[in-house]
Design a protein around this nucleic acid. Structure first.
Lengths: 237, 237
DNA sequence: AATGCAATATTGTGATCACAAACTATTAAA
DNA sequence: TTTAATAGTTTGTGATCACAATATTGCATT
């Protein structure tokens, strides 16, 4: 596998009222998030444009947007690729999540009403069902939606974009994590979080979110395991 | 003053090897940071392009990049402007800073060697001199540089882009803060931070950074004072 | 004088083209 | 067989143009 290995882009559906640039952005974003584009794989504007059957223009804008969110890397020679993961960077990203996400949860807490709590409960149940049925590909998106809905309850949201940027950089690793979830006995931290919300207890909520994140990355509990995953995802030299 | 009020853009110097899009990005970024573009002011691609004597193309890319960093806002009708500030959002941004920046400082601590410490000391001294001479316009950039150098010592940096995004959204308010600094007796938190670094004490460093941030926004200590500043900066209706 | 509507102007979006820089592959020399 | 130079190709950048959607202006009506 080299820098010209084929890419299979999952093209999203184009809903009306969405510009081509936005559609390209969302498609590339989900491709990065789902590990469809391997780190180091050289991307070209024209190549992507042809693949998605659009002109290079909207691709340029989408790439610049993703680069601004650190989902893509632009080298000194202006070449674009998904950044390589390293053990130290992985650690840094996880610690950043633990620094921000509990804070975002506590900040959203006062705004979480019964409607939102119901939505959280529904997402959590869907996640449980997905785990039972072994539909591992549904778990990561549902887990993300759970967190997104919770933090997003805060109408003066400033953390969510930063958190989404971290998720994007963690990218395919999040999926690797959930694909290995069944190996672990998972205490339901989402349930704990919802109970903390009902009790309006910020500290308990922060603890639940922190535990949820830490257990979600437990698959990389040892340096060796982590290294294995990194080598497995960084296949392009 | 309305949506067509004139803008005076301070054009940065174009160093060689920098693309026009990058130059436009940096110029617009510093304009937002320095409050040269009032919140709500309607921006047009063609207008900015003419102002900077370039084609609309690089302006489009720069705007999209700044929007991805939440420095600019793109409305549903695809119009661009600097977001309005509100008291709640201001509070949210400050709390986010306090959640991330001490963490970034602690994470950078092991990597801060004497060279970097010397650089920090130099920046701090320049800041003191600027305060003595009443050169208030130099204080904010120097203060930012101090924090940037500190956090940037971490070679696996993931927080700095998020922090810079927060600074960008605080934008002109940071300058208002420093322009009022002389009204307050300022304990030198930078000095405290540097001593914590010498002692390799993460907790003391976090406390110093947190205090530095809190005192930097003390000008908005009461809701009334904050409201005055907001009305002063949101002049476009 | 205020309001609704039509005509005009402006603006964002996307496509195409030109050009210079970077990369690749071929060829020739050691 | 390996390395270096060169020719050819690919690629990002920036400019210009066309078009549809949005905003603004001017005018007629109430």
């Amino acid at each position: 596998m080299d820098k010209k290995s084929p890419i299979t882009l999952t093209l999203l559906e184009r809903t009306h009222g969405v510009t081509i640039a936005q559609w390209v952005y969302m498609t590339l974003r989900s491709a990065v998030m789902n590990g469809e584009i391997l780190p180091g794989r050289a991307l070209t504007i024209r190549g992507l444009a042809e693949m998605m059957d659009v002109s290079p223009m909207p691709v340029r804008e989408a790439i610049r947007q993703l680069a601004a969110q650190n989902a893509l890397e632009i080298t000194a020679s202006r070449r674009v690729s998904v950044p390589q993961m390293t053990a130290l960077k992985f650690n840094e990203l996880c610690e950043a999540r633990i620094a921000i996400e509990p804070h975002a949860a506590a900040r959203a807490l006062p705004y979480i009403d019964n409607t939102i709590l119901e939505k959280l409960n529904s997402l959590n149940n869907q996640g449980d069902i997905a785990i039972e049925n072994g539909e591992m590909d549904k778990i990561s998106p549902l887990n993300q939606a759970f967190h997104r809905v919770m933090y997003g309850a805060n109408p003066n949201q400033v953390c969510l974009p930063m958190i989404e940027s971290l998720w994007l950089q963690l990218g395919p690793f999040m999926r690797l994590a959930t694909s290995k979830l069944e190996e672990f006995y998972l205490v339901d931290r989402h349930q704990e979080a919802m109970e903390a919300i009902k009790a309006q207890d910020p500290f308990a909520l922060q603890m639940a979110i922190q535990a949820d994140i830490r257990e979600g990355i437990a698959f990389a509990s040892t340096a060796e395991r982590l290294q294995t995953f990194i080598e497995h995802s960084n296949q392009v030299r």
